[in-house]
Design a protein around this nucleic acid. Structure first.
Length: 675
DNA sequence: GCTAACTGAGCA
DNA sequence: GCTCAGTTAGCG
């Protein structure tokens, strides 16, 4: 109603308001124009756009509006117009001019001035993309965690005062040679590289922490990658013990987006320089990198399941080379890849001598008992094991490793171990229920009177009955002793030193404080029966990882065939010898690491013309194609190791050409961990 | 991937 | 000469 009360004032007021608002609009327009005008200093931003197309994996230039001149720093997240739509990207550099002849589009928005893509990580992403025939944007998706705006606003807490006491690293590493020299070299600012076979019963997280501390003492940063969250927790504790509070961070998927981004920023901003984490930690932006560490590089968790499928070991070793850092590749066993690093002289060996190993544990083999009925209950664990468990339990906890239910679920001949096949369709036989005869897994035909096609024997070998059955069986035999399980969904991280039996599946073995009095490995034949390139290496790894949890001087009992070379390697505790033999075999068979393999997977037609299009080096062999599930097929391309770079380049070019021509996509995997 | 520009068919 | 669906080059 104010309008009615003062009608005479309105025109004047309106005029003034219009004038004012016009002036304001002019000012706004002028300011907008000024802001939209290109920045005076370095008006060009080179941007890596987040598009999934191989042929667009290169930086594109954008004009930097004056308003964004300060925020669009190298490493900043931006939004840009690309092919008519808004896409995310990272500024990789600023410059005064562009080699692009057309007009540059302006940056749409600087999402945040926080420089999250460090130059060394951008370069690493480029190198990895090349090596794995993928794109930088795919690698960056693995390397840079999602932004968390609230967290970004907070300042990173500065590292606490570092009480640099002369850490007793050399004592912790005692029994490993030449660990003392390795630690001293790190502390002096050197960058030694070592493949480390840890002695059994070693508290390895502590040793890793001391290596980190030696590097930290030289004023440099450290990246430690371990297979899973359980191991992160262990190394985290050890680092706190050795370095003190607030010197390092952890990077795992488990900690959630806010915490993860906070820890990432602490490294990115240089507030911390030591990190332990799972595979994504390999990309952590640690300043002045002095050492990379990978523990148990044979664990398949180190193989990234997302494109372009980089392996943590390769990522870390590439990084160590680029950034001039040292490297420590540790484990209770040795992969053929790390054995190869020793063979080529890239790294030196660190390990215990025989006397030290003997001091720490003894491994014996209990033969398997024959004449077992598939349906019999309680006949699976040999008497020798019962005796050993009963003896050891008086001294402390006992670990029993039993392969996972369904790990291999086909039956085999009890005597000669030939897989049992269906008489109708040759499909694998398996148990379908506790009281039913074995049946074919393909056609379902039950088999009442089976006889082995190889040797005529009529007994079938029991499949894995699972940790629950094993626990039950042991529980009955040991009245009054606590028997617990650790497997699948309910994995125990640690168990106390009290008298108890822990039945665990491979990889789920809890750590016992002070170590187990004894470790029993059941059904070793099952781990060996995997049809895989790495069956032997993987079986030994899983046994050794469990066996190493024994207390110093403890006993390990494995149930299996004493003549099997892999079990013998366990008895002698000789991971180096085993790896060397496997490597020899691989070299003879033209398999990695002596060769470089890649697979091309997809629809049959697409794979076919991908092979035609591939300009592989002349020495390349193409194996296949073989049909897989879902109408897909796969070829394997193999070249001598020396031509690996050339193969990667050809595969990358293949992907760029295919994406530019919009041909049906094929999945390329360089160095697949298994075939 | 997406968009925008380009192509030729169909029609006034 | 125009619209419109379908095709395709190029993405700054």
């Amino acid at each position: 109603m104010a309008d009615d009360e003062h009608p005479e004032l309105l025109p004047g007021l309106a005029r003034a308001e219009v004038k004012a608002s016009q002036a304001k609009a002019r000012a706004t327009r002028a300011r907008k124009a000024a802001e939209a005008a290109p920045a005076t200093l370095d008006p060009v931003a080179r941007v890596l756009v987040d598009v999934p197309l191989a042929h667009l994996d290169r930086p594109f230039d954008y004009a930097v509006p004056a308003a964004m001149a300060d925020a669009a720093v190298p490493g900043a997240r931006v939004k840009v117009r690309f092919a008519g739509q808004d896409v995310d990207g990272f500024v990789v550099a600023r410059g005064s001019e562009s080699d692009h002849t057309g007009r540059l589009s302006p940056l749409r928005r600087v999402v945040s001035p926080e420089p999250v893509l460090h130059p060394q990580i951008a370069a690493l992403a480029g190198e990895l993309a090349e090596r794995y025939a993928g794109t930088r944007s795919d690698v960056l998706r693995l390397a840079i965690p999602a932004r968390h705006a609230t967290t970004e606003k907070e300042a990173s807490a500065p590292a606490g005062p570092w009480h640099h006491e002369p850490a007793d690293g050399e004592a912790a590493w005692a029994g490993h040679e030449p660990a003392a020299a390795f630690l001293r070299h790190l502390a002096d600012g050197g960058s030694p590289r070592a493949v480390w076979a840890a002695a059994p019963a070693t508290d390895w997280p502590l040793l890793v922490a001391h290596a980190a501390a030696a590097t930290y003492a030289s004023g440099r940063g450290v990246v430690v990658c371990v297979p899973d969250g359980k191991d992160v927790t262990r190394v985290d504790r050890a680092l706190t013990e050795v370095l003190g509070e607030g010197q390092h961070v952890t990077l795992t998927a488990e900690s959630g987006p806010a915490r993860r981004y906070r820890d990432f920023l602490a490294l990115s901003r240089g507030a911390r320089r030591v990190v332990v984490g799972t595979r994504a930690a390999a990309f952590a932006p640690v300043a002045d990198l002095g050492l990379v560490v990978i523990w148990d590089d044979g664990d398949d968790l180190h193989a990234e399941p997302r494109a372009p499928y980089p392996h943590t070991r390769e990522t870390l070793l590439l990084r160590a080379e680029r950034e001039g850092a040292g490297a420590l590749i540790g484990g209770f066993v040795r992969t053929v890849e790390s054995a190869y690093l020793l063979r080529t002289g890239w790294a030196r060996e660190i390990g215990p001598d025989r006397a030290e190993v003997r001091r720490r544990l003894t491994v014996t083999i209990a033969g398997e008992e024959t004449h077992r009925d598939v349906h019999a209950r309680g006949a699976r664990i040999p008497r020798e094991v019962h005796v050993a468990v009963r003896e050891a339990i008086e001294a402390g906890p006992v670990l029993v490793q039993t392969p996972r239910l369904g790990y291999v679920n086909a039956l085999a001949c009890e005597r000669c171990r030939t897989p049992a096949r269906c008489t109708t369709c040759q499909g694998p036989l398996a148990l379908t229920g506790p009281a039913t005869p074995p049946a074919c897994r393909w056609c379902g035909t039950p088999v009442e009177a089976w006889a082995c096609a190889e040797c005529g024997h009529r007994g079938l070998r029991a499949p894995v009955l699972g940790d629950a059955r094993t626990a039950e069986e042991l529980g009955r035999a040991l009245p009054g002793v606590r028997v617990r399980t650790s497997s699948g969904e309910s994995v125990l991280a640690t168990v106390p030193t009290t008298k108890q039996v822990v039945v665990a599946t491979p990889g789920a073995e809890p750590v016992a404080e002070g170590g187990y009095a004894a470790v029993v490995l059941l059904d070793t034949w099952l781990l060996l029966s995997r049809i895989d390139l790495r069956a032997g290496e993987e079986a030994l790894r899983r046994w050794a990882d469990a066996a190493a949890l024994v207390r110093p001087g403890g006993r390990v009992l494995a149930v299996g065939d004493p003549a099997h070379p892999t079990l013998q390697a366990l008895v002698r505790w000789d991971p180096a010898g085993h790896a060397a033999r496997e490597t020899d075999e691989r070299i003879a068979a033209h398999l990695p690491p002596a060769s470089r393999l890649a697979t091309i997977t997809g629809a049959a037609g697409a794979v076919d013309d991908a092979v035609t299009l591939l300009a592989a080096p002349p020495s390349a062999e193409v194996l296949g194609p073989v049909d897989l599930a879902d109408g897909e097929c796969r070829v394997v391309v193999r070249v001598p190791r020396a031509e690996g770079v050339e193969l990667s380049r050809a595969l990358g070019e293949l992907q760029r050409v295919r994406s530019a021509r919009k041909l049906d996509a094929v999945r390329v995997q360089v160095d697949p961990p298994t075939l």
